[in-house]
Amino acid sequence: MAGGNGATTRRQLTLFPLHVTLVFQLLCAKRAAAATSFSFANQCAHPVWVGALSGATSPQLARTGFYLAAGATSGLAAPSSGSWSGTFWARTGCAVDEGTGRLACATADCGSGDVACDGRGPAPPVTLSEVTLAAPGSGGLDFYDVSLVDGFNLPVSVAPSHEGCQAAACAGDVNAACPSDLRVLSGGEVVACKSACNAYGSARYCCSGDYGTPAACGPTSYSQAFKAACPAAYSYAYDDASSTFTCSGADTYHITFCPAT
């Protein structure tokens, strides 16, 4: 009997670590397959209509546009397999035209005529939140930024949930400091600020043609005005050094419109 009981005990001790290992592996696999999520908060005093556009090789998200009331929050999940890249932005001053029944927005309209943007990007000027996610479980880095390369319509921040990862943000009011020749007016109010590329289309301001390299295309007085208002945001095409952020292990990216300064 004593020999039998000892054999049973040894077998249980052998199986127990294997059971724990299998459970741990299953939990890790489940975590690796879990999708990163995006949360959206509207801290503006007015509603916004969020737009979402996936990159050319990335699958479309479950929603490509939605209404977000002042003070409201919402969320989206990224695809659970493979890497993902895309942009988010806020449309403002949107209303349905009584004659056509189409939605039109004062800033950052995607031209779909609907709340959903259905694969259409925003018309500049627009503040963009750009995110590139590494494949789940790969251990790779996510990249994210706030870009004013296509101008500015309202302040935005992108903050990873992972401790130690820095937020990318343009919390300043660029409209208040917008040069007069870049202003977009509605009802006498500055509602957006064009980039110099949007306004003039020149190779110098667009970093194209002979100016299509970082060495040839440095900051201008226009981009420096953007940088002064939002030091952590892209102010022109090659403004990488102080404007691109990386993070590994974030479960959620919090995107806030009109974040507190």
Rank of each mutant, 00 (worst) to 15 (best):
P136H: 09
P136S: 07
G139I: 08
G140W: 03
L141W: 09
D142M: 06
F143D: 04
S147C: 01
L148H: 14
V149A: 02
N153L: 00
P155K: 07
V156M: 10
V158P: 00
H162P: 00
G164F: 10
A168E: 03
A169C: 00
A169K: 01
A171K: 08
G172F: 04
N175Q: 02
N175C: 06
A176F: 01
C178H: 04
P179E: 08
S180N: 11
L182Q: 02
R183H: 05
L185I: 02
S186F: 12
G188R: 08
V191T: 08
A196W: 07
C197G: 13
A199H: 07
A199T: 10
Y200A: 07
Y205W: 02
C206H: 08
C206R: 07
Y211L: 00
G212Y: 00
T213W: 05
T213V: 07
A216L: 06
A216F: 11
P219W: 07
S221E: 15
Q224Y: 06
Q224R: 15
K227Y: 14
A229H: 05
Y236H: 14
D239Y: 14
A241T: 14
T244A: 13
F245L: 13
C247L: 08
C247V: 11
G249T: 12
A250D: 12
A250G: 11
D251Y: 12
T252F: 07
Y253D: 01
H254V: 07
I255K: 02
I255Y: 04
T256M: 06
F257L: 07
F257A: 00
